[in-house]
């Protein structure tokens, strides 16, 4: 009995060391942003006095609020678009029969395998030629439909009984109405999975904005924080740079605390299936 208890304690101790190695750096970061600049190097987590100077400096130096709103708008627009269009295609692939359906399926497989390194430059040129550089459309347009989303929806829709659709068709519903009134309410897990993954990847995307956005007022939040951290305007003050990173992390951390189960399960399932 004692041996089992001891085993349990050791096990918890190991888990705790694991958890701390992931959490401690974040805790240290919070503390560093609240310390006076000259105390950041100290090992102690507790500052001699709490100061918001670092945060104040971020707000003074860069339009971080504007970039937050840009990111929020762009990520929401992409997520909404992916949910609507990908579920539409997923629906068509599952419940409709039409010519070229298999062809579309193979095309999709193919798109998912093209690495972005090939499309990056031509897409950038396309955006420039369309006169869309430095616009929201430049950030949104290339990500409006996702083959990955279509796959997940198709997979999930296959488990929805056909009778449901046949009944709705007899009632005279159009296919679009069936999708949004009948299928969507029955596909909550798929919507959550695609929604979380799309939002998170677009929120965190930084290479694409760095390429198509040069105008400061149009920059996304990760882009602005990146340029702030490597550029001169932070005057290499660690506390200020860390504070800008903290501001970028806070929205995701807050959402994650409440919905961590959905985040983990969504990403785990997408990886296993994709």
């Amino acid at each position: 009995m004692n041996k089992i208890l001891l085993g349990k304690i050791v096990h918890y101790l190991l888990l705790l060391i694991g958890a701390l190695s992931f959490l401690y750096p974040f805790i240290w970061m919070v503390s560093a942003t609240l310390k006076p600049e000259n105390e950041i190097a100290n090992l102690s987590l507790i500052p001699s006095h709490i100061t918001f100077d670092s945060y104040r400096a971020v707000f003074d130096k860069i339009p971080i609020v504007r970039s937050f709103l840009n990111s929020l708008f762009v990520s929401s627009a992409i997520t909404a678009s992916v949910l609507v269009f990908s579920s539409m295609v997923g629906y068509a692939m599952t419940f409709l029969s039409f010519r070229g359906k298999n062809l579309i399926f193979y095309i999709m497989l193919f798109t998912m395998m093209i690495p972005f390194q090939i499309t990056l430059i031509p897409t950038y040129i396309l955006i420039v030629k369309l006169g869309l550089a430095d616009s929201y459309l430049a950030l949104i347009l290339p990500f409006m439909v996702s083959a990955f989303g279509i796959f997940l929806f198709k997979q999930y829709f296959s488990s929805i009984p056909r009778d449901l659709i046949d009944a709705a068709r007899i009632d005279g519903s159009s296919e679009v109405m069936i999708l949004f009134r009948v299928i969507w309410p029955n596909a909550f897990p798929a919507l959550v999975t695609v929604g979380i993954i799309t939002f998170l990847t677009t929120w965190n995307e930084v290479l694409w904005p760095l390429i198509v956005i040069r105008e400061q007022s149009m920059m996304t939040m990760p882009q602005m924080v990146t340029l702030f951290a490597i550029g001169g305007s932070a005057e290499s003050q660690q506390g200020v740079i860390l504070a800008s990173a903290m501001l970028l992390a806070i929205p995701v951390i807050i959402i994650y605390i409440f919905f961590q189960r959905y985040f983990i399960e969504s990403m785990a399932s997408s990886g296993v299936k994709g």
Partner: peptide
């Protein structure tokens, strides 16, 4: 659940944040 969530936290945080944080560390 707590341990799983803490191991997973860096996955959801932007690479920009993680990189800035580690640059300091």
């Amino acid at each position: 659940t707590f341990f799983r969530a803490s191991f997973f936290l860096p996955v959801v945080i932007s690479g920009v944040v993680v990189t800035i944080l580690w640059k300091s560390l």
